[in-house]
Design a protein around this nucleic acid. Structure first.
Length: 875
RNA sequence: GGGGUGUUAGCUCAGCUGGUUCAGAGCACCUGCCUUACAAGCAGGGGGUCACUGGUUCGAAUCCAGUACGCCCCA
């Protein structure tokens, strides 16, 4: 039967994925006879489409889950998405805008209907894409952070934390996104270094027409909100301004000149304009000096009436206009180009406006302490461990979490305002009413008298509950699922969200389950292009994920992503890596074709015992390494070990050793052993390359209904015959030596050669003769005491190898080569001798090291002797 | 500015508690091969003062200090 010469992923991927699903292999139920192995997916945005980061992240999760499943654990990978309040809302607003509808026109209820429609239509795309990658999630457990049960959990937690006194409402400086018209958490602000202008502006001193001071600012439009000028009291230049006032240019409003050491004398002119409403530091300074707060901006970034000028115009338009007007007035001293840090909204890319507003906050200190402890004491391990420091420093400097967002898409804050302006916090309007009646003593209040807070909660306020809420641990804290699956085992995510997701999950887990949510956190790197640039839509340097799968096969892409992906290091992605992955698939496929094509002859006795024993030993050694890599979360190294075992040891060495001559049959024992090896290799490869391995597994022999590779038992460790491994290394060196001679003299492999060996260890080499003869094409091997005349030779260890070759040897060249090698070896020996004659070394070094040095010496001496004899023979 | 972290072959990276797994892997490169599993392949090969400077030690890529450069986080 003919099998295609190249592996064709398209034909098999869909088939096996459907098959696995139908057989229920991805499903998980609590099973007391098995250990659970649980992973919760970092829920991708409901607005997202599969990108390289997802592919890397989910491939790693799938590898861990598939391996655990094969190890006989009850593997459960819970998928889902989060509602991404700001991103989704922006998406829906834009969609409505195209239809000429504004969100304010249709109101909250109607808007949310549109949002849900949008979610139903597009929200599942990314999960479908994960299936193409081979992700073995338990899809029946798919959750969404805004589905009713998950939302109930969020509200329940909010109310609980409020009652514990950890949630409060207050006016604070927040990061305001004037485009999304919402507050953002610090983590949602991206700071970029940009080129700006520093404007030097003159403020007249009140009552002194000829005197003025000069301030420097990057934001001239905010001068309209100034409420003071501040100077360092140590600044000798400005002592004469004590107790005076300055006039804000253009509007001539008088503001005090104050003194505070906060001001950096070196920056600008040493005079700082203070605008408490529009700068965090100024705000704090304002509190200290009791300054009024003058907020001159509307929520959309335009100026309001308090600014007096340019009312209704955008802040950036005003910046240009005011600079011009100041210049015309002679109050713009100069401008300078500078580079400074500006915050941008992660979602809308609008420049963030520090803005004072009434928000809800979660107090962090009490929650922080235990969450810091469990990472410090390694109850939770971060991989790689370098992130422990980062985690610690962030946690130690944590600030209260602004959890309210001025949006509609999300869980609405369960605070209800009473007619008198006070509020109650409750699970539902009925509870709120009861509380309100009690609080006011007014039994006539109705629900209509209560007004629920307009804002929703930060999306992370849902996601931090994820490992608990996906198992309904809030709704039903003792249910069998949460009891069995929680704490989960491993979490795979990006370092970027170590703080605002991972850390908070730890806090929530400890607060609500009294147990950590996971044991290991594996932090992947960022996928960059091969120039090291972060992949982004605007750069257009992100390859189409599904296109890659289409081109190289899911297995090829999975391995491609991992080939160069050490834990926690960024991955410089190059499509060539996927090509390498595809080539590997093809290599496996062809090894299978070879084996599949063999006919068995029951009458032949097994000539390959040595090769079979050798590969078994090789497999056992590699298996141990691979397991070690896995326990250290070195997934990329584990893959590389599998790759080399399959390609180098199995294909290039073992199969070549046992391969019968063309169209000759193979003996039953060899075939049997080889198929067993192949099956074990398929098992090791399966987590990385699920599709091709299942295809071969199913094709290689008849399988029963339940006999799938995806649930086959993971190999077990076995002992490795180290003596055999060592001797085979020697044999392989000899083969390589002969091939090297062939290459350098241009002798094709098809031309048979003879080999004469001068050795003290014939007994070791004899068993390997058939292998060496086969692989190096040597009809005859003989043992000699003297090298034959006119032969090419090489030395391995203390053994000399001669290939008789009339006329092929140029004695002069040969002599030079031998002489060179002799000199090198003598130098080497000298170094060893020097070490051994050093008394302090002999006394100080451990016996094992000494032993090795003596061995080195012996080997070198033997080699020198052999080389010298060869030289004499030549001349 | 504060903290973290790194610098090993052309590229991406291993290299644990100092000592033949100490200078390695994969890719790339060079040479020769369409040898009946695979040219998406086979065989062979050449590449590195382990950033720099000192120190500790019998012995340093490995430990310590400083310098240079890079990245990350925070301000």
């Amino acid at each position: 039967m003919a099998i295609s010469k190249t592996y064709n992923p398209k034909e098999v991927e869909e088939k096996w994925y459907t098959n696995w699903q139908q057989k229920g292999f991805f499903r998980s139920k609590p099973n007391p006879r098995k250990d659970p192995y649980t992973v919760v997916i970092p829920p991708p945005n409901v607005t997202g489409v599969l990108h390289m980061g997802h592919m890397l992240n989910n491939t790693i999760q799938d590898i861990l889950v598939r391996r655990a499943r094969m190890q006989g654990k009850e593997a459960c990978w819970v998928p889902g998405t989060d509602h991404a309040s700001i991103a989704t809302e922006a998406r829906v607003v834009a969609m409505l805008k195209e239809k000429g509808i504004s969100k304010e026109d249709i109101g909250r209820e109607e808007f949310l209907k549109h949002a849900w429609d949008w979610k139903e239509k597009y929200g599942g795309i990314i999960l479908e894409q994960l299936k193409k990658l081979g992700a073995s999630c338990d899809w029946e457990r798919t959750r969404f952070t805004m589905e009713p049960d998950m939302s109930d959990a969020v509200i329940q937690v909010f109310v609980d934390l409020f009652r514990k006194g950890l949630i409060y409402r207050g006016v604070r400086m927040v990061n305001w996104d004037p485009q999304g018209k919402t507050a953002l958490s610090d983590e949602e602000v991206i700071h970029k270094q940009v080129n700006s202008k520093l404007y030097y502006i003159n403020y007249q001193i009140a009552g002194e027409a000829d005197n003025y001071l000069t301030i420097a600012t990057t934001r001239p439009e905010t001068i309209l909100g100034d409420t003071a000028i501040c100077i360092n009291p140590n600044d000798t230049r400005y002592q004469h301004l004590q107790g005076k006032e300055a006039l804000v240019p253009l509007i001539n409003r008088a503001i005090p000149i104050i003194f505070d050491e906060y001001v950096d004398m070196e920056f600008g002119t040493g005079c700082l304009k203070v605008t408490p409403a529009h700068d965090l530091n100024d705000y704090e300074l304002g509190i200290k000096h009791n300054l009024p707060v003058l907020d001159i901006l509307n929520d959309d970034g335009t100026l309001n009436s308090k600014a007096q000028l340019y009312v209704g115009e955008d802040r950036f338009v005003v910046r240009k206009k005011i600079a011009k007007e100041l210049e015309a007035n002679g109050q713009l001293a100069k401008t300078e180009d500078i580079s400074n840090n500006v915050g941008y909204s992660e979602r809308t890319d609008a420049v963030i406006e520090p803005k004072l507003s009434m928000q809800w906050f979660l107090r962090m200190e009490e929650l922080r302490d235990p969450a810091l402890r469990v990472v410090n004491d390694d109850t939770i391990r971060l991989h790689p461990p370098k992130f422990k420091n980062m985690y610690r420093s962030w946690m130690e400097n944590i600030r209260d979490w602004c959890i309210s967002r001025q949006l509609w898409w999300g869980q609405r804050i369960p605070a209800y305002y009473l007619p008198d302006g006070s509020y109650v916090v409750a699970l539902n309007p009925e509870d709120a009413l009861a509380q309100a009646k009690y609080k006011t003593g007014n039994p006539n209040l109705t629900i209509a008298d209560l007004r629920q807070d307009e804002d929703v909660l930060d999306t992370w306020f849902s996601s931090w509950l994820w490992p608990i809420s996906v198992f309904d641990g809030f709704k039903d804290p003792d249910n069998p699922d949460i009891q069995y699956y929680y704490p989960t085992n491993d979490l795979v995510t990006a370092p970027e969200i170590l703080f605002f997701w991972v850390a908070r999950m730890i806090m929530a887990g400890l607060e609500y389950r009294k147990e950590v949510p996971f044991r290991n956190v594996y932090l992947t790197g960022i996928v960059r292009d091969k120039l090291g640039r972060k992949m982004s839509k605007s750069l257009g340097n992100s390859p189409d994920a599904l296109g890659l799968i289409d081109q190289y096969g899911a297995d090829g892409v999975r391995t491609g992503m991992l080939f160069s992906s050490p834990a926690g290091n960024d991955l410089l992605f190059d499509e060539k890596l996927c090509e390498q992955g595809r080539n590997f698939s093809n290599k496996i496929w062809n090894a299978y074709r070879l084996i599949k094509g063999w006919q068995v002859d029951e009458n032949i006795t097994n000539p390959n015992e040595l090769a079979i024993n050798w590969f078994r030993a090789k497999f056992n050694v590699a298996f141990e390494q691979i397991e070690d890599h896995f326990t250290k979360f070195r997934i990329s190294d584990a893959l590389m070990a599998v790759y080399k075992l399959v390609w180098d040891d199995f294909c290039s060495s073992y199969l070549e050793m046992i391969k019968p001559a063309y169209q000759n049959p193979v003996d039953a024992a060899t075939l049997d052993a080889t198929i067993n090896f192949l099956e074990d290799l398929l098992k090791l490869m399966h987590p990385f390359m699920p599709f091709i391995t299942e295809e071969i597994w199913q094709d290689i022999k008849e399988r029963s209904d339940k006999d799938y590779l995806i649930v086959a038992a993971w190999p077990k460790a076995g002992v490795a015959d180290s003596i055999l491994l060592e001797r085979m290394d020697k044999a392989q060196d000899i083969i390589a030596g002969i091939r090297n001679v062939r290459n350098s003299k241009n002798i094709p492999q098809t031309k048979a050669l003879n080999l004469a060996i001068k050795t003290q260890e014939q007994y070791i080499l004899t068993p390997f003769e058939p292998l060496i003869q086969k692989l190096a094409n040597l009809p005859d091997i003989s043992y000699v005491n003297e090298g034959p005349e006119g032969s090419l030779n090489f030395v391995i260890g203390g053994n000399e190898f001669f290939i008789p070759m009339e006329g092929a040897v140029d004695p002069a060249v040969e002599r030079e080569r031998l002489q060179k090698e002799l000199e090198y070896t003598k130098g080497f020996l000298a170094a060893v001798d020097k070490k051994l004659s050093n008394e302090r070394f002999v006394n100080g070094a451990p016996p094992v090291v000494l032993e090795k040095e003596w061995q080195k010496k012996a080997d070198a001496e033997a080699k020198i002797k052999a080389l010298e004899q060869s030289l004499t023979a030549i001349s």
